[in-house]
Amino acid sequence: MEIGVYSIGNRTPDPTTGRRPGEPERLRSIARIAEHAEQAGFDVFAVGEHHQPPYALSSPVALLGYLAARTDRLMLSTAATLLTTNDPVRVAEDYATLQVLSDGRLDLMLAKGNSAAVYPVFGRDPVDAGELMAENYALLRRLWSAEPVDWSGRFRTPLRDFTSVPRPLDGVAPYVWHAAVTSPGTAELAARHGDGLFANHIFWPPPHTARLVDHYREEYARYAHRAPARVGLGGQVFVRPRSQDAVDEFRPYFDNGPVYGHGPTLEEYAATTPLAVGSPAQVVDAVLGYRDYVGDYDRQLLLIDHPGLPEKTVLEQLDLLGEQVLPALRRVTDDRLSPPNPSKCHVPGRGRFPSGRAGQHVAP
């Protein structure tokens, strides 16, 4: 299993000091975190895309290009590229360029996005999100697999005898993941095209994520692809050598976090979602516990530079995770002689969509 970290580039104030990092500081910090993640032994680093304050990260391809020149081993990824508002021709060209320059250390995570406000910024209507995603992805695949391309659709001007450049490295397009939090339609799109599903289940209880992954695997099997289905999961951790120290230090960040603060307590949230706060052994147990409800899976990305945590603390997290958590996780997850059977994993309450989640204050 690949294990990595990701950042969404938020500029949340540190609740213990009241200080909010500026945009240049935050972008440079994310780059340092990525370099440190490689040194600590992580496999993947991924960055999100947002187009409004308080985020600093609107151009993942630019940051990933910078990181490609400053790292040697890390797989670089988006988390995620908004294919509903980005032009697929631009996406095809940008990420093929980055794939070539990184010598193939790139894959792409696609999503519709979770903010309707971004659509009119790019001349789109959020009502069209599902159709935009399907049409733009069909064109992106076509641009990477064929030359020249003739194309007409509902949402953009036609293409005639067009070839995007550069071509994908060695004729193989970047691997594509589809990010989903609540949408079975996204799982179906990933399954139909033989792509991976990234279930970013940081806000939802296990039964919901189990249903989403089950649905993807069922659809994937129906299409009888040659390659196996691939599942990735999000997660949140905060680790210190002593459990109580981790809880005490993280509590003000949780209590004031814009995405989950001012709702359930830290203890309630950790009991009902994948959030893991504690000692290295407790974090290992929590992450390995994800397999209890999704079975064996392929990629684990951890969100650790949130919400308002200072860079020094994030780098300390990477060191502790690299020294004590990653080796323990790999001892288990790299042993694939008898992987869990997803069809036999049982989670109480598993059924069809939708499911309640932990904390109604959390935005999907």
Rank of each mutant, 00 (worst) to 15 (best):
residue 212 L to K: 00
residue 147 E to V: 11
residue 34 A to M: 01
residue 324 Q to R: 15
residue 47 V to R: 00
residue 65 G to D: 05
residue 25 E to W: 03
residue 177 W to T: 05
residue 22 G to D: 14
residue 290 Y to F: 11
residue 37 A to P: 08
residue 300 Q to E: 06
residue 32 R to W: 11
residue 49 E to K: 05
residue 46 A to I: 09
residue 231 V to M: 01
residue 252 P to C: 12
residue 94 D to E: 15
residue 170 D to I: 02
residue 80 A to M: 06
residue 343 S to Q: 14
residue 136 N to E: 13
residue 231 V to Q: 06
residue 13 P to K: 12
residue 333 T to A: 02
residue 183 S to W: 05
residue 250 F to Y: 15
residue 317 Q to P: 00
residue 329 L to Y: 01
residue 140 L to H: 04
residue 285 D to W: 08
residue 301 L to F: 02
residue 11 R to F: 14
residue 105 R to D: 04
residue 205 P to E: 05
residue 36 H to M: 08
residue 261 G to Y: 02
residue 209 T to G: 03
residue 208 H to R: 14
residue 15 P to R: 11
residue 11 R to Y: 06
residue 83 L to N: 01
residue 66 Y to M: 11
residue 275 L to A: 06
residue 344 K to T: 11
residue 6 Y to F: 15
residue 41 G to V: 11
residue 106 L to Q: 10
residue 344 K to I: 07
residue 284 V to N: 06
residue 28 R to Q: 15
residue 65 G to I: 01
residue 347 V to Y: 07
residue 127 V to D: 14
residue 241 P to G: 03
residue 121 V to R: 12
residue 220 Y to V: 11
residue 205 P to Y: 01
residue 162 F to D: 04
residue 196 G to Q: 12
residue 100 V to M: 09
residue 308 G to L: 04
residue 294 V to Y: 04
residue 166 P to Q: 03
residue 79 A to T: 10
residue 169 L to H: 00
residue 163 T to Y: 06
residue 112 K to G: 11
residue 282 Q to C: 03
residue 169 L to D: 03
residue 143 L to T: 07
residue 316 E to D: 10
residue 166 P to W: 01
residue 349 G to V: 06
residue 279 S to K: 13
residue 39 Q to K: 13
residue 321 L to F: 08
residue 121 V to G: 11
residue 66 Y to T: 05
residue 280 P to M: 07
residue 68 A to Q: 00
residue 112 K to Y: 05
residue 143 L to P: 04
residue 269 Y to E: 09
residue 190 A to Y: 12
residue 303 L to V: 08
residue 177 W to M: 08
residue 299 R to N: 14
residue 191 A to S: 10
residue 71 T to H: 13
residue 239 V to P: 05
residue 278 G to C: 12
residue 187 A to W: 02
residue 126 P to C: 09
residue 311 E to Q: 14
residue 61 V to G: 12
residue 126 P to K: 10
residue 106 L to P: 09
residue 272 T to P: 02
residue 338 S to C: 13
residue 361 H to Y: 13
residue 357 R to Q: 14
residue 48 G to V: 04
residue 356 G to M: 02
residue 140 L to W: 00
residue 240 R to N: 01
residue 120 P to R: 12
residue 94 D to W: 07
residue 337 L to D: 10
residue 332 V to S: 00
residue 239 V to D: 02
residue 313 T to P: 05
residue 281 A to C: 14
residue 55 Y to C: 01
residue 259 V to T: 08
residue 158 P to M: 09
residue 162 F to T: 13
residue 41 G to W: 12
residue 93 E to K: 11
residue 284 V to C: 15
residue 319 D to V: 01
residue 87 D to W: 01
